[in-house]
Design a protein around this nucleic acid. Structure first.
Length: 571
RNA sequence: GGGCCUGUAGCUCAGUUGGUUAGAGCAGAGCGCUCAUAACGCUUUUGUCGUAGGUUCAAGUCCUACCGGGCCUACCA
């Protein structure tokens, strides 16, 4: 038994996330966590809301509530939605927690002691009308290069030229439109990542089997131009972890907070501590996951994220932990995802294109979404959501291949033998063939799960389901029943054992359906199979069952067209 | 501009360190079955593996150039 630490990238607090966010970290990490638990490993699966930063403050202002209240409310909303999708976090924390403040400050102080923090004086735009400093992106103006009047302070979207806010002609606040801006001198802490460049480079090189997407992004940042640059880790904001605190090795940083990207990954650690606090498990309980001097040495740590998150997880966060010179557990495997597109285009909040997590749950059961998204996860390149593909996947895979298999077996049995697993007859060649087939597929399924290839593993799982239909068709118990009910009974008995096995194996992908299947056949034993033959004889003659209702209702063409229209967006 | 990824059957994708007749699912066609959510099974059509060169006994797989699609480029998170 291994100990597996799993973290999903933190969803940002400013609104409800769409399906692209879901498939890029939370969903695959959940399937992985469920699989690892089923295999008997000790799992700690952590996620949290990422609550700091300018967008959170602005969203709160727009909603007309204090930012702390806004975050508290949105945290509950996101937590409920996560439960709706059956995301099985051991703890869903908040980056605004006391624990995160404590650990973030602790790590910053350690970095300071190690000489990895610089105090840098820089110029920032201050907006009088907004009463705040504005990040470069929140300043708009006319591009000095191409004359586009919607250029942002970091880059002109039109001509792609990199800009400095002071380059803009007629700069204005992107929030209020105010031109009452002032360049102010302000001090910030910088993490001297450049010092750790070689260490990080070697560390990345020593990793095996990481997705190309992960390593290529990390390498780009390490080697592009002058190499890895130092990074500002503080901001002039109100909401966040205070930079000036008791024991801080710097002074004069009152009123500033750590940059959201500094404290967000630390929340993985802090959320584990929050879990220990809430369960009363004590500090040792979380430290054994995170401190290699306190038991975390044998932990296998896997992170899940969209590709936008990769630089922070491959470089900044490891630099923070390594640089502290304390024995923190570093990540062992970074799984990164490409984007999910919607009907060939981008998901767009502003244009109302695409599907948000709350809407999705209103339309179909979570298993539908889980299955389609995971079996089409953007693992090798971007993948595209279309209602047609969704309909096809659900109807074919879930309704026809799996659902109908359960249905045809249970209904046939009820009609011919009654609602208990029938006795009589014996197994022969056909059972041996399908058992061998499933054993082979299961091996592939497990190998792909271990390798965090969720899309491929889904195809293996589907093949396992399909083998049941092949078996049934070849064995034809309905024909045999006429001359030899006993032999027919043996086939049905075996088919019931397939159903049970499917219930067990499907749980990482479709937990609700899995539960429904196992409940219908009254299966007490839902353990992951070690021995496939033993697993296929768990249900004995006389075992009572109930015939389930339709497990997966099909999506009709009319319904699909309705949804296509409903989600087409404004334009 | 620089970098990365990607281009394989009508569609979505697999193709391990280059090695015999290039695979799966969906869609299409034919046959079979009739227990089942008109579900299932079997058989089957289609490919100059983006284009042009090159390396090699041998290339979808390696190299170069070009064409198409996407992403990243450090103050959104």
């Amino acid at each position: 038994m291994a100990r597996i630490l799993i973290t999903s990238a933190l969803p940002y607090i400013n609104g409800i996330k769409h399906l692209g966010n879901l498939v890029g970290s939370q969903l695959p990490s959940d399937a992985y966590a469920r699989y690892m638990r089923a295999k008997g490993h000790e799992v700690m699966y952590i996620c949290a809301t990422d609550e700091h930063g300018t967008p959170a403050e602005l969203a709160a202002a727009k909603a007309g509530v204090p930012v702390s209240e806004f975050c508290a409310d949105m945290h509950v909303v996101q937590k409920d939605i996560a439960e709706g999708f059956r995301l099985s976090f051991d703890y869903f924390g908040r980056s605004s927690s006391d624990r995160n403040r404590e650990i973030t400050q602790h790590l910053a102080a350690a970095l300071g002691r190690e000489g990895l923090i610089d105090v840098v004086s820089e110029k920032q735009m201050y907006s009088h009308a907004d009463g705040r400093y504005l990040p470069d992106r929140y300043i708009e103006g006319t591009c000095p290069n191409c004359g586009d009047d919607k250029a942002r302070g970091d880059q002109c979207e039109n001509c792609t030229k990199q800009l400095d806010p002071t380059d803009l002609i007629n700069p204005r606040s992107a929030i209020s439109g105010s031109t009452d801006l002032e360049v102010r001198e302000t001090k910030h802490l910088y993490l001297k990542q450049s010092t750790l460049r070689d260490t990080l480079d070697k560390w990345i090189d020593s990793q095996e089997g990481w997705p190309i997407l992960t390593t290529s992004i990390a390498k780009k940042w390490l080697h592009d131009g002058d190499g890895l640059r130092d990074r500002g880790i503080t901001r002039d904001l109100d909401w966040g972890v205070p930079v000036q605190f008791e024991g801080a090795p710097w002074s004069g940083m009152e009123g500033k907070v750590f940059y959201v990207w500094f404290d967000a990954p630390i929340e993985y650690i802090a959320a584990t501590a929050e879990w220990a606090d809430e369960t009363g498990a004590g500090d040792a309980a979380w430290e054994r996951w995170w401190r290699t001097d306190k038991g975390a040495d044998d932990v296998h740590y896997v992170q899940f994220m969209g590709k936008d998150n990769v630089p922070f997880h491959t470089l900044s966060f490891p630099a923070t932990l390594m640089g502290s010179a304390e024995p923190w557990k570093l990540v062992d495997f970074i799984k990164s995802y490409n984007w999910l597109t919607y009907e060939g285009g981008k998901f767009s909040t502003s244009q109302g294109r695409g599907i948000f997590m709350n809407q999705a749950l209103d339309i179909f059961p979570s298993d539908y979404w889980r299955w389609w998204l995971l079996s089409n996860a953007p693992e090798s390149s971007d993948s595209n959501f279309t209602w047609e593909s969704f309909q096809g996947g659900i109807n074919k895979d879930l309704a026809d291949v799996l659902g109908n298999f359960v249905s045809r077996v249970t209904k046939f049995c009820r009609g011919k033998f009654g609602e208990e697993v029938p006795a009589g007859g014996s197994y022969g060649e056909a059972e041996a063939v399908v058992t061998a087939e499933i054993a082979k597929r299961l091996k592939a399924y497990e190998a792909n799960m271990e390798a965090v290839e969720l899309r491929k593993a889904a195809a293996d799982l589907r093949a396992i389901w399909a083998s049941g239909n092949e078996y049934l068709q070849a064995a034809a118990p309905w024909t045999l029943f006429k001359e030899s009910p006993e032999d027919s009974a043996a086939i049905i008995r075996f088919a019931f054992n397939l159903i049970r096995l499917y219930g067990v194996l499907s749980a990482p992908y479709i937990p609700d359906a899995s539960k429904a299947i196992l409940a219908a056949i009254n299966a007490e034993d839902a353990a992951w199979p070690d021995d496939i033959e033993a697993a296929l004889s768990a249900l004995q003659a006389g075992h009572a069952f109930t015939t389930p209702e339709v497990l997966f209702a099909k999506i009709t063409d009319d319904r699909r067209e309705e949804l296509e229209a409903e989600f087409a967006g404004d334009d």
